[in-house]
């Protein structure tokens, strides 16, 4: 069994006993994974992350990091972790390099780490500029540099590409994937930008209304909810439902079909034509988006 860097079992949390924000959450983040934590705004992502980080006090010993309960693990275990929660946290009256210095002192890190982190995120030239003069993208990069400062084994990032332009998003995503692949750093990333995570995660969990609706590897999600679907627009859709396996009627003119590979798409199309269907369009369903809507929809 793979070692889990973060292990949560039946976590419930709220600021008053009567009103729980997180309800019985269980998560397991395997070492070396890129773990996506997906949820709409207000679903409980940031609260979960804050509890994992010990910022919000959890008294029932339900959370472990690096195999140790957070009550005892922190603050020492933070040496092995880098974080970026909510939005870039920084001191805007200080320069970029002074912001990194504050953390380097606390972590007892040498100056080289600061220089290295600044170069890694492309902020070396702007290091002496006060952060209040930084653009949002520059702030985000520096925040990532702050998270990477101690060469962490675990990076916990909340919306890490928020505020970046499209190129910046690609760059940071590449940086994080490279980091994972080269150093084996485990990434625990939350986002509501589903396409962003879809392309990089190895594992994911979906949270809605304080409850985890799904967690597992990408393959497990595909197995459970069907991976690859196509939407077929045709005339009199209900008449053709009987000819096709794994199909569902969406409306009068729409069928949704689970497809394992492109052969199944071709075969389905042939069957429909052979039975006299007038097919207007075959298109793929946006997988994560669709699943996300399904999983998080309320009763």
């Amino acid at each position: 069994m793979a070692e889990n860097i973060i292990q949560i079992e039946n976590l419930s949390f709220g600021f008053s006993p009567k009103k729980q924000i997180l309800k019985n959450i269980s998560l397991a983040v395997p070492k070396g994974s890129i773990y996506g934590f997906i949820g709409a705004n207000g679903a409980g992502k940031s609260t979960t992350m804050r509890v994992i980080l010990g910022v919000y006090p959890e008294v029932n010993h339900t959370v472990k990091v690096f195999g140790e309960p957070i009550e005892t693990a922190y603050p020492e275990t933070f040496r092995k972790m880098g974080t970026l929660i909510d939005y870039p946290a920084f001191y805007d009256h200080l320069s970029g390099i002074d912001n990194l210095r504050t953390l380097a002192i606390l972590r007892e890190l040498p100056r080289e780490n600061i220089d290295e982190a600044l170069k890694l995120v492309g902020m070396w030239d702007a290091r002496f500029i006060k952060m209040k003069k930084y653009s949002l993208g520059m702030k985000q990069r520096l925040a990532i540099a702050m998270a990477l400062l101690g060469k962490p084994q675990l990076l916990i990032l909340d919306e890490p590409v928020n505020g970046l332009d499209p190129n910046g998003m690609v760059e940071i995503r590449q940086l994080l994937v490279e980091l994972n692949q080269k150093t084996g750093t485990t990434l625990f990333i939350s986002s509501h930008l589903l396409q962003e995570l879809e392309k990089m995660v190895t594992h994911l969990a979906i949270i809605a209304d304080g409850e985890v609706k799904f967690q597992g590897s990408k393959e497990e999600l595909s197995d459970r909810y069907g991976f690859d679907k196509v939407e077929i627009k045709l005339k009199n859709a209900p008449d053709f439902l009987k000819y096709i396996d794994h199909a569902r009627l969406i409306d009068e003119n729409t069928l949704e079909v689970d497809t394992g590979d492109i052969e199944i798409i071709a075969r389905t199309n042939r069957t429909l034509i052979e039975n006299g269907a007038e097919v207007y369009r075959i298109s793929t369903v946006e997988s994560f988006e669709k699943w996300f809507m399904e999983i998080t929809k309320k009763n």
């Binding site: 804050r50 980080l53 010990g54 910022v55 603050p75 020492e76 275990t77 933070f78 040496r79 972790m81 974080t83 929660i85 909510d86 939005y87 870039p88 946290a89 920084f90 001191y91 805007d92 009256h93 953390l103 606390l106 972590r107 702050m146």
Partner: peptide, 18 residues
């Protein structure tokens, strides 16, 4: 205020310091 303003508390609390 410097900590209230830009998430400074959180930044500090996720460092190896009590």
């Amino acid at each position: 205020q410097i900590d209230h303003k830009n998430g400074g508390w959180l930044l500090m609390e996720t460092q190896p310091v009590k």
